[in-house]
Design a protein around this nucleic acid. Sequence first.
DNA 1: AATCACCTATCTAGTGATAGATAGGCTTGA
DNA 2: TCAAGCCTATCTATCACTAGATAGGTGATT
Lengths: 180, 180
Amino acid sequence: MTKDTREKIIELAQEAIATRGYSAFSFRELATALGIKSASIHYHFPTKTHLGVEVARNYRGQLKHAFDNIENGYPDDPKKALESLIAVYRYEVRSSQRMTVCTMLGAEIKNLPVEIQTEMKSFYDLNIGFIERQFQKMGYENPREKACQLFALLQGGLMGSKGQNDPAYFDVVVKSAQLL
Amino acid sequence: MTKDTREKIIELAQEAIATRGYSAFSFRELATALGIKSASIHYHFPTKTHLGVEVARNYRGQLKHAFDNIENGYPDDPKKALESLIAVYRYEVRSSQRMTVCTMLGAEIKNLPVEIQTEMKSFYDLNIGFIERQFQKMGYENPREKACQLFALLQGGLMGSKGQNDPAYFDVVVKSAQLL
DNA sequence: AATCACCTATCTAGTGATAGATAGGCTTGA
DNA sequence: TCAAGCCTATCTATCACTAGATAGGTGATT
């Protein structure tokens, strides 16, 4: 019951961060959305930094979980696994107003409390690690490098689609990943 | 003399936006840096939106100017022209705390006044247009698509380098552009 | 040449709104 | 009974923004 509130706060904060950024969301706005008062959010998270860190950790967990699922689903089909990842991004491009938490916090990084800055590295490690493993399975010679390249393409493609308000941009960009 | 103040405000605001974002910079901080009062900034720019639009326009002008220079310098060497563009990004990666104005405002887009959102499209048109022209000169079959791909790579590479605090990431990412 | 009107660029002092944060009290269920 | 969860009420700091004043320069009229 009460645990729910805490989780809902994290969920809403995550959505807000991915959509408008860390510095642009407020306790009051989350509270209003939840039908409670901003003071009550401080009960669960003493400071905005605490909440931010928790969102980051939560996001990290979701990432890990999603990657585990994909890899369990396609243990011997790395190409399908990569396509699943791309499909997630494509879905975000087409159906949401959001960036990725990783992308948004990455852009804002110089304006974040150090505790959150620290979390950033793990987002990249998870994403690139997942991609790298697929490329390994595919027998590529420089799986790590290729992974960095694909991930940059995904991030750049997502950002560009939103910036130009053109979902097709993402598809065009990702097309070049067919040189996998 | 006095014209200078206005220009210095734009300059400082641009730096602040590229570093920490539109929603994270304040009139007071610019004023303090200039040794004046925030009220004086309102003399030059009635609202934050006005200033933001002016920064965007100014940035657009700088972009255009930089691209013109490169194209005049290498009218018959599109490869060198592209290398010049990449060198600019590489320099930003290694020597500054900044993102690009285009990258930063792109991430924040859902939190920007519409007047500034509108400017975004022109950043992409300029960047991608420049790259496309070089690919045309190089006789590529789908210069526009290739241009989108390279630009996404540059944006993603810049963001990733900052997010991981690893300049080498950019170099690794851009290496894949050697398939030009 | 002197005066009057206006402009530029800044100031002081303040507005109301909102930010994150805190102290202390009420309510409810185990 | 007592702690969890949320409340009211408030604080301090900062936000963008405004009103009104002032000092110094420009320029035209007399």
